Computed example of a mutant assay.
Amino acid sequence: MAISLEDVKALRERLGTGMVDTKNALVEADGDIEKAVEILRLKGAKGNAKRADRSTSEGLIAVVESATAVTMIELACETDFVAKNEKFIALADQVVAALADSGAETVDAALAAPAGSGTVGSLIEDQAAIIGEKVELRQVARVTGDKFAVYLHRTSKDLPPQIGVVLAYTGDDAETARGIAQHISFAAPIYLTRDDVPPTEVENERRIVEQISRDEGKPEAALPKIVEGRLGAFFKQVSLLEQEYARDNKLIIANVAKDAGLTVTGFTRFKVGA
């Protein structure tokens, strides 16, 4: 049967598929649009299997905020071309909204969470089949707290956010809280305080800096003081409250927060591909 250009256009707008694939699916389906959708999805699903081993180094960060929690995800794809595609961005919005409703806090729980008539996992698979690239949910976080500062950073003006930070805090100075969130995006701390660093990680760092100090020929009597000094530098690198403030390196984050009447209760930082 003859296939109208209007039907081809409507199906392409619905799925984002190529002209030739769309027309061929409609021909195979004898003009039945819903059957053509099924044909294209099945064809895409086979493509998903072939793409399983491909790397996903591009993508975006998406966030949904409620009164008591913020949900943040990293949705990954293969190319920056897809990362800025409207359908990929819309998929990320659907996924993060579904996860905010479900309360999922891990990738496994997120993939099993309900989304529409299926799950988040099936939604991603279906859209990956249409988009034509491997798409995966790489990271999920749910940050709870009293108040939040959310900062999304674009590493390129033509791409969606590539770095996302959620800062939970108490206090009233929202501007300073946002400044700390921006600092986190730049400085990439791992822990809130030095007490949050696992003891095994501290001991491993202690062993390394002691060996470095010995190899440098430092006096044995001075080693304990040198090692502690280098451990202090390590804590400044990984612990948010001990870091020098990116906007003023004469200040440390703990004092910036204190002077603003803020208490930082937690944070999460995602970076695409990291």
Rank of each mutant, 00 (worst) to 15 (best):
T56C: 09
F81K: 06
D195N: 14
G217L: 10
I253K: 09
G145C: 01
H153E: 13
I208E: 04
S66F: 00
R51D: 07
A92R: 12
K46N: 13
G121F: 09
K23W: 00
T170I: 10
A115I: 06
D32Q: 12
N85K: 02
G171W: 04
S57Y: 01
P114L: 06
L99V: 02
E201V: 13
R138Q: 05
K218F: 01
Q243K: 08
A2E: 14
V238G: 02
V27C: 10
R12N: 11
M19R: 05
L231V: 07
R142S: 05
K134F: 09
R206N: 04
K147D: 03
S66W: 00
I184C: 07
E210W: 06
K50C: 04
T155Q: 08
L42C: 04
E78S: 03
P199V: 08
E203S: 13
Q94D: 15
D196G: 10
G232T: 09
A274L: 06
A109F: 00
G121E: 04
E65W: 03
K236Q: 12
L192E: 08
L152M: 12
E244K: 15
V27Q: 15
I180A: 13
G59A: 02
A45Y: 12
S66D: 06
A187H: 03
E205M: 14
A112C: 03
Y191M: 04
E125K: 11
D108A: 14
Q139Y: 01
M72K: 00
D53W: 02
V227S: 07
A260Q: 10
G132W: 01
A36D: 13
G164H: 01
I180C: 11
P160E: 09
G179N: 15
E242G: 08
Q182M: 14
S55I: 14
V143K: 04
G229S: 05
T22H: 01
V8P: 10
V140G: 00
E74M: 08
L75N: 01
K35M: 05
A29M: 08
G171Q: 12
G179S: 15
L231M: 13
D80M: 07
I89H: 03
R178L: 15
S66P: 04
L223Q: 08
H153K: 10
Q243P: 02
V238E: 05
A181K: 09
D173L: 14
K87T: 15
F148E: 02
V143N: 02
R41E: 08
L223A: 13
P224C: 06
V27G: 04
P160Q: 09
R206P: 01
G273M: 07
L91F: 11
I130M: 15
A98C: 11
L137I: 05
S239R: 09
P114E: 07
T22V: 09
Q162I: 03
T71E: 02
K258Q: 15
S55W: 00
E136Q: 13
A10D: 12
A110Y: 00
P189K: 06
L240C: 06
A174M: 13
I180E: 05
H153T: 10
E74Y: 00
R214S: 05
D32S: 07
I39E: 10
S239K: 03
P189N: 08
E205Y: 02
R194A: 12
R178E: 15
E34K: 09
I226D: 07
E6Y: 10
